[in-house]
Every structure is written in C-alpha cells, then in structure tokens.
C-alpha cells in the first residue's frame, strides 16, 4: 500500500491511471455494438493500420505522433466501412490484406531507416510496454479531450446506435440515416484505437474492445445493462491491471489484457451456472 501511495505522488503515474481508465471505458462502450454487429474484425484491422502509421511517425521523429496516426486511422476506418459493405469485394479479405500490409510495411520502414533501437520501438508499438508512463502532459490532455468527445457522442447517439445495431434494415425502412451512424461507429472506433495504442499497444487493442462486451453478455441480457456492465468491468480490469503492473513491474498492456481475460473467465463461469 505504501509503495502504491508513493507511486501515486508522481504525476506521470496519475496521468497514466486517468488516461487508462478513460480509454478502457470508451473501448468497452463501443465494443458492445462492434461485437454485436460482427464488426470486431474492423477494430483488429484498424489497429494494424495504426501500427503502420506509428512506424512512419517514429521514423519521421515526430514529437506528437497522434497528429499523423489519427487521420490515417480514421481515413482507413472510412475506407474499410465502404468496402466492407460492398457485396462485390469480400470485405473481411480486404481488411485482412490491409492489416497485414500495414504491419509488414511498418516494420520494413522501421528497419530501413537508421533508428537506433528498432526492436525496442516495434515491441513498444505492438505491446504498449511502458509508454503509458512516459506520456507528456500534451498527450494526456489530448487523450482526455478525445475520450470525453467519444463518450458524449456515444451517449447522445445511444438510442440510434442500438437501433442500427439491432436491426439495420428496420432502421433504414423507418427513415434513419443508417450510413451516418455506421460511419460514426467506425470513426469513433478509429479514435479509440489510436488512443489505446498508448495504453496496450496495437496488438492487444482488440482485447480491450472485445473482452468486456463478451463478458457483460454472459451476465446480462438487455442492451442497457450489457453496455453499463461492459464499461464497469473494463474500467475495473484496466485499473487493477495498471496497479498490478506498477507494483509488480510487469508490462502495462499485457497486464491489463490478462485482467480482462480473468474477468471474462469469471463471467463465463457465472454465466454457465445461470444456465447459459
């Protein structure tokens, strides 16, 4: 406990906790419609695109890499949505192609440029390692503002996101602009993924989006409860994961994801006992 309070005196630790909790919250909220719409693969594809963009930013030695990574990822989200709903091209194949291409070229660019510590940088980008503790004040504010924006957008569009997720055809038939809301969902997803890169790295982001939603669905059976439960479980897992990682010196990202997996296992058992 003393050690923990000691750590909490450092502003960078407090920043990390605030940012981590906000990101976990946003990821879980969006995770519910993404999982239900069978869109979770989009999150996976986008996280790899974000990795590629991050590599470019690193090679260019940009001080604030979000300025490059955010627009590229958002743009890819829009493109993926367009092709994903096109029946002529296999949407999932396109996403798989984009995502592995981004991974390969990202790593290639990193190696070709003479950055001093390639494997370290790549590892950080993929797994997040310690970068959450090295956030600058500017990055912290950017994270806070973007996550609050995501939260507000989500709450204001909650009923429409439900409508479009539950039955897109019905929504369109009664005059809802479903394309607009699908676009909103994918742009928000892109923003969350870019934010979450700092926390867990690009390989583990999907876990942050998928696990809380699936866990909550084991426990509750209406949409509102599932959404709230996913948010609570995700925040709890992220918080616990960060504390453990600070105390035990384990990598932040994988500790948080491990906590999410643990939560899922518990929810799965509870769900099984309730006869599901």
């Amino acid at each position: 406990m003393d050690i923990l309070f000691n750590y909490l005196q450092y502003p960078f630790v407090r920043y990390a906790l605030i940012v981590g909790v906000l990101i976990a919250l946003c990821a879980a909220l969006l995770g519910v419609p993404l999982v239900l719409k069978r869109f979770s693969f989009i999150g996976d594809g986008l996280s790899h695109v974000a990795f590629g963009a991050m590599c470019i930013a690193t090679v260019l030695r940009m001080t604030n890499n979000m300025i490059l990574v955010l627009p590229i990822t958002v743009l890819s989200a829009v493109l993926i949505l367009r092709t994903g709903t096109n029946t002529k091209i296999k949407g999932d194949a396109v996403i798989a192609m984009i995502s592995v291409a981004a991974l390969a070229f990202g790593y290639l660019i990193m190696n070709l440029s003479n950055t001093p510590n390639v494997s370290g940088d790549v590892c950080t980008t993929l797994f997040g390692s310690t970068s959450i503790l090295t956030l600058t004040l500017g990055e912290v504010w950017m994270c806070i503002i973007l996550s609050l924006l995501v939260l507000v957008l989500f709450v204001l569009n909650y009923n429409r996101i439900f409508a479009v997720t539950f039955d897109e055809n019905f929504a369109r038939a009664v005059g809802t602009d479903t394309e607009k809301y699908n676009l909103l969902i994918s742009v928000i997803t892109a923003v969350i993924i870019v934010l979450a890169m700092n926390l867990v790295g690009s390989l583990l982001i999907s876990a942050l989006i998928i696990f809380p939603a699936i866990s909550a669905m084991r426990l509750y059976h209406n949409y509102k409860q599932v959404t709230i439960a996913a948010a609570v479980l995700s925040v709890a897992a992220a918080f616990a994961g960060m504390i453990v990682s600070i105390l035990a010196g384990t990598p932040v990202g994988s500790t948080i994801v491990a906590a999410d997996v643990l939560v899922f296992a518990v929810c799965w058992i509870i769900g099984a006992r309730n006869g599901r």
Binding site: V155, N157, N159, F166, V174, Y220
Partner: peptide, 24 residues
C-alpha cells in the same frame, strides 16, 4: 442472440420520432 429486452426493441420503433433529440 442479441441481448435486448422486449421494451428496448419495442421503443426502438419510435426512432423516427426522435428528430434531433437524443432520448425518448
């Protein structure tokens, strides 16, 4: 397999009446 209550589904029929509002 969608987790939604009967009420949530029924009231989603009112979505076009929302106009610019966010909540029912």
């Amino acid at each position: 397999d969608f987790p939604a209550s009967v009420y949530e589904i029924v009231i989603s029929g009112c979505q076009s009446r929302l106009g610019r509002r966010a909540f029912y």
